[in-house]
Simulated assay, not measured.
Amino acid sequence: MSENGQEEDIRMPDPPEPTLDELETLAQAIGERSDGFELDMPDGSTVHGYRTPGIHGRLPEGWRAYDIMECDSERWTPYPGYENIDEDERVDGENGRYQTSLVIDDNPGPHFVNQGDPFVTRHDLTGVDWEFDEDHCGYDGTQLSDDIARLSIQTMTDIASVRTNPTTF
């Protein structure tokens, strides 16, 4: 909170694009089939990373792992015909549903909650304390292997360009 009692937005600066070597090292640690995942922050920035079923090696320098705990929020969406149901008669999945939300935990370890796959990112989420609803987080449709392939092609194109267009001094 700021001095005037309003919440301050945490601005997530975009780290530079990872290198091919960095992503290959990451793939050894978390698996190249790890899914790309994004979190929309309250300040409008987007945090990119990967959800992985496990971490089996050392992460590259600058990468961090966070637990993501999945939980039902208090936000209720009634099914058609149940719009006026009393709160004490709500049954998740029967007459409506509670929206799922994700909570970042920057203290990875065992928990007694419905814990999802770890989130691995280059962004520092230390101190992030809010829930992400379904509209502000999700898989981005790529896998780590896709990002490695994209950087590999880019690297090969850059090398070919240097060979075909040598700079003369």
Rank of each mutant, 00 (worst) to 15 (best):
S101T: 13
R51F: 05
I30C: 04
D147A: 07
S2R: 15
G96A: 08
N84G: 10
P18F: 00
H48C: 06
F132T: 05
R163I: 14
M69V: 15
Q28W: 07
R33G: 04
D67A: 09
M69T: 15
P18D: 06
E74Y: 08
D86I: 15
D86Q: 13
D105C: 12
G31M: 02
F37W: 12
S161K: 11
E7M: 14
N165D: 14
T167E: 12
P108L: 00
M41F: 05
G127D: 07
E61Q: 12
V162F: 11
Q6W: 15
R90N: 09
L151E: 06
D146R: 03
N165L: 14
F112R: 10
G93C: 14
P166I: 12
F37A: 02
I148A: 02
E24H: 09
E94T: 14
D105K: 05
G5Y: 04
E61Y: 03
C137N: 09
I68Q: 10
G138F: 03
T19P: 01
R33F: 13
R150A: 14
S145D: 08
D106S: 04
T142Q: 13
E32V: 04
Y82K: 05
R33N: 11
L59C: 04
G93V: 14
P15D: 01
E94R: 04
Y66C: 00
L144V: 06
M156Y: 09
S145I: 07
T77C: 11
T19Q: 01
V128G: 00
V128F: 02
I85Q: 06
G5T: 06
G109Q: 06
A160D: 12
M41G: 00
A29F: 01
D133S: 12
H56L: 11
D158M: 09
N165G: 10
T46G: 05
E87T: 11
S161M: 15
Y82V: 06
V120Y: 00
R58N: 10
E131H: 08
G127L: 11
P118D: 05
E8T: 14
G31H: 04
V47G: 00
D14W: 08
T46I: 10
S45A: 09
T46K: 08
G49Y: 00
D124I: 01
T77R: 14
I159Q: 10
D72N: 10
L102M: 11
H111R: 14
D146G: 02
T25Y: 05
M41C: 06
Q115C: 14
D105V: 15
T100F: 14
E3T: 10
W130C: 06
Y66Q: 05
H56D: 07
I153D: 11
I85R: 02
R97V: 15
V120F: 02
D105Y: 11
C71Y: 08
E8G: 05
Y82A: 10
E38C: 12
G62W: 00
L23P: 03
T167C: 13
I159W: 09
L102W: 13
H48P: 00
W130D: 06
D92I: 09
D124Y: 01
V103I: 15
I30K: 02
T126H: 08
G116E: 10
S145R: 08
F119N: 00
